[in-house]
Design a binder for these strands. Sequence first.
RNA 1: CGCGGGAUAGUGGAGCGGCACCACGUCGGGCUCAUAACCCGAAGGACGAAGGUUCGAAUCCUUCUCCCGCAACCA
Length: 519
Amino acid sequence: MAGRKFYLTTAIDYVNARPGLHHAYEKTGADALARFHRQRGDEVFFLTGTDENATKNEQAAKEEGLTTRELVDRNAAEFQRLCQVWAISHDRFIRTSVDKDHKKGVQEFVRRWVENGDVYPSTYEGLYCTRCEAFYEEDDLVDGRCQFHPNNPDAVQRVKEENYFFRLSRYQDALRELYANDPGFTVPDIRRNEVLGWFERGLRDVSVSRGRNLEWGIPWPGEPGHTIYVWFDALINYVTGIGFGTDEKTFARWWPADVHVIGKDISRFHCIYWPAMLLAAGVPLPKRVFVHGFLENRAGRLSKSSGNTIDPFDFATAYGVDAARYLVLREAPFEKDSPISTDAFAQRYNADLANGLGNLVSRTLAMVARYFDGSVPAPCEGASERAVREVAEAALRDHDAAAEKLAFADALAAVFTLVDEANKHFQRTQPWQLAKDPAKRAALGGSLYAGLEAVRIVAYLLAPYTPGTSARIAEQLGVPAPDAARWAEVAKWGVLREGHRVRAGEALFPRLETPTAAA
RNA sequence: CGCGGGAUAGUGGAGCGGCACCACGUCGGGCUCAUAACCCGAAGGACGAAGGUUCGAAUCCUUCUCCCGCAACCA
């Protein structure tokens, strides 16, 4: 796969609240995939950003005594800071209310619908919650109030307006065909099955504009007073972010997306609406939509509306960025829902990072320093060394197979089989005993060499998840930084040369003595 | 009967027709190079409830209970 282009996206985030751990989770998963592909030699474009054109931002701003612009800028900055703190390596952070190319591209996209006869005006009358920005049926309301905003008596209003509707129904057969021909379009299967279920109930045309002379939002082309419904403007970011409607050369280079990484709550939009929207605009479809699961705790799911989020900035500070990234991806398999808890994170930190990886690096380099004065000994492969080598070779294979599928918990587990094997290897060969007998010098060197190679390979394999730590280990080993190394040259056993200098460093992951206090 | 997913050792998971497995935690032992870390061993569950199919069921079927998600708020 070396040398191919790889374009991936995350969902863009609503700016009506602060970032939660779930935002960091999605971005970290996507980031690990981006870094994984770069490391294997692919050319990667990684897009993330904020979804800023929701009308509710106007109201939220009013309540805080700010202009809409001020509120949106302030909150968008928090999401950008999140990306910095969590070491997200995106190539572009798109802002839908700011970036001119987005606005222009969206209007071009809609213009194509119009040309294609896929939108038509129609009168819509119904109960509209201005807080949700959604229409509801009478049955959905509780005492005449929105069930999600019961404290806002004025939130629900009866509105009647001219809207443009998108002919979603026209694409039902094309979408069925897509799902029949390409079972991998939506993964994992559990999410695909949900999508198939939606088809069974049929697809209705959807309103894609708002006609209430809104100040905020992207104007409908040639139709003053109408704005493009925020959901549709948001989805189009995936093409405008790489030049659709403004830079066709760049667009042609990156599109179609190799994968859209999203949460399961918005799979309807990405798995049904988005492909139909693209078909209507005459744009090729993305290759895959990966629907990740949710972080859950006993207080219920983590979400903006329930307000039980773990602060992602505090979390990263408490554990360190690399550990934080490792913990969310290891504890919460990307492909499904997972319960999380601060206790589980803390235990995982000590077990895997402090006692496992950190201690292995520490003991290995300490022994090389003590017994060989920091100079790499000659390889000397006995039964134990061979076992380590074989586990390393399996880890390289198994990691990549899992990472390709975005199964990061499995991918990380594969890497840690090598950490465990190296620790067992030292117990088997007992270099501290061999060191007492000058006649066993070669065996001693061989044991430590195998340990060093294990550490080196682990560091490279973990680079997509723990970029800072991997770089530190590479530095201690005096080998090329993970960002700079050619994968084919480092991803194999036996690269370190006899006499090469290595040095011990500070503890990579200090053990937490009171685990529960960490977060 | 709106659709879908679950219920397995203290916790989190795997297994999905044939001796109930893994990780963490706990307990006991060993080692001493290392971040009181590492290694070895043990205890602990008969798999939500009831019924059925089968030589044999966490694993298939039926009913039930309880969770969760979706059904134009939400990653």
